[in-house]
């Protein structure tokens, strides 16, 4: 298991424990790919009705592709930063409809310690 995969596991566990937050997104379905541009690692997750239904499955096409350095992705998944900060300053880019990124960003922001 890689560092990023472990961080994703912990992130998903923390998210699922926040039941109110999961409930807020119960209309959300999405396939998300997180790409570490420096190491080349890609981790995937599939969201169905607001819950992460699978992780690490092979994926040809995604609704949202998030690209950043491994360090930035790890910081986000370990809730040290929300994605908007590196996004605003060019350290993270996204492809896909705005809705998916905004949901992901909102979830991380809510889970991040203030």
């Amino acid at each position: 298991m890689t560092v990023l995969s472990r961080a994703l596991d912990d992130f998903v566990a923390t998210y699922h424990a926040a039941e109110q937050l999961v409930e807020q997104h119960n209309e959300w379905d999405s396939k998300i790919a997180l790409v570490a541009e420096d190491s080349g690692e890609t981790i995937t997750l599939e969201v169905e009705q607001g819950r992460v239904s699978s992780m690490g499955q092979p994926m040809d096409a995604a609704d949202l592709i998030v690209t950043a350095s491994q360090e930035v992705l790890q910081d986000i998944l370990e809730l040290r930063r929300d994605p908007n900060e590196p996004y605003m300053f060019g350290e993270l880019t996204v492809q896909g409809a705005e809705e998916h990124f905004m949901r992901l960003d909102y979830i991380v922001t809510m889970l991040c310690p203030a």
Binding site: E37, G40, T42, D60, A61, D63, I65, T67, A97
Partner: peptide, 16 residues
């Protein structure tokens, strides 16, 4: 994004 094999889903509002 070099080295990325994943594409956006067809029909998604991204890339249209």
């Amino acid at each position: 994004m070099s080295g990325v094999n994943i594409k956006l889903k067809p029909g998604t509002t991204g890339g249209q």
